[in-house]
C-alpha cells in the first residue's frame, strides 16, 4: 500500500502530466476560453475559488467496520498476489474502495466473483474518472461490484496514466463490454483483451475523448453532411 506524494493540497489545473504520451486519438488542445467566455472550471457564479481540490481519500486504518473486514480478509486468503495487487484501501461514507494495480484487475475480479466467501456475482457499473492535475495516473476506472448472496457492495479502483492500458474484465463480467467501450470512448483508456473496443456513444470518426478534464465543454463546430458551422461563441454575430 502506498499513497501518492503529490496528493495533498489544492492543485490548480495545469498541463496534464504525461499528456504527450501517444493516446489512441488525440484530444484537441484545451482552449484558453470555453464557450461564452467560461474559464477554468466553469463555475457559473465566479465566487467558487477556482483551485481544484484533492478528490481522493487517504488510506483507512483497520478495522474498517461492517462487512469490509470480512471482504478484505476473504480476498487476502483467496488471492495469492494480494499484497502486491492492493495499493490502498479507503473506507469513506460507508463504502469500501480497494485500489488495485491496473494489471491485476481482471485477476482480482475473477476471485471476487468465484470465491465462496466473496461471491460478487454482479458487476453493477464500470466507469472512469479523470483526476487530471491531482494524480499522475490520471484515469481511475471504478468497478462497482455487488454480491447478491451476501447483499454487499465493494468498489474496485484501478488508476492508469494517459497512454497506459489495463486488462479488460469482460472475460469475468461480460456486462462490462459496453461500459468499458464507454470508458474508452469518453476517456481514451484502452482495455486490452476487450473483444470490440470501439466508440459507443460518440460517432466513430470523432476526435478526442469528451469526458477528459482538458476537453472543453462546447466550442466544437457543428458538422452535418460536410458543412461545418462554427460553435456559437465563434460565430460572427457574437463577436
Amino acid at each position: 500500500m502506498s499513497t501518492h506524494s503529490e496528493s495533498d493540497g489544492g492543485v490548480p489545473v495545469t498541463a496534464p502530466v504525461g499528456a504527450n504520451l501517444d493516446a489512441p486519438a488525440q484530444t484537441p488542445p484545451s482552449p484558453d476560453k470555453g464557450m461564452f467566455g467560461v474559464q477554468g472550471t466553469g463555475d457559473v457564479s465566479g465566487f467558487g475559488g477556482l483551485a481544484r481540490r484533492r478528490p481522493t481519500g487517504v488510506d483507512s486504518p483497520r478495522p474498517f467496520g461492517g462487512y469490509f473486514d470480512e471482504v478484505y480478509d476473504a480476498l487476502e486468503e483467496a488471492y495469492p498476489g494480494f499484497a502486491d495487487a492492493i495499493e490502498k484501501v479507503v473506507v469513506d461514507r460507508g463504502e469500501l474502495t480497494l485500489h488495485i494495480k491496473p494489471e491485476r484487475i481482471a485477476e482480482v475480479c475473477q476471485i471476487m466473483r468465484d470465491d465462496e466467501s466473496l461471491r460478487f456475482e454482479l458487476c453493477s457499473s464500470v466507469d472512469g474518472v479523470d483526476y487530471l492535475g491531482s494524480d499522475n495516473r490520471r484515469f481511475h476506472i471504478s468497478y462497482q461490484l455487488t454480491s447478491m448472496t451476501y447483499r454487499r457492495r465493494v468498489r474496485l479502483e484501478a488508476a492508469v496514466a494517459d497512454g497506459q492500458s489495463l486488462p479488460s474484465v469482460t472475460g469475468v463480467y461480460p456486462t462490462a463490454d459496453w461500459q468499458e467501450r464507454e470508458a474508452y470512448d469518453m476517456f481514451g483508456v484502452v482495455f486490452t483483451g476487450h473483444p470490440n473496443l470501439t466508440r459507443i456513444l460518440m460517432p466513430d470518426d470523432w476526435e478526442g475523448h469528451p469526458q477528459r478534464k482538458d476537453y472543453p465543454l462546447g466550442g466544437v463546430p457543428v458538422e452535418y453532411k460536410g458543412a461545418s458551422i462554427p460553435p456559437p461563441d465563434q460565430r460572427r454575430v457574437y463577436q
Partner: peptide
C-alpha cells in the same frame, strides 16, 4: 465524485 467545490467533479 466531489472535489470539495460547489459543482460535481464527475
Amino acid at each position: 465524485v466531489s472535489d470539495g467545490s460547489t459543482h460535481p467533479y464527475r
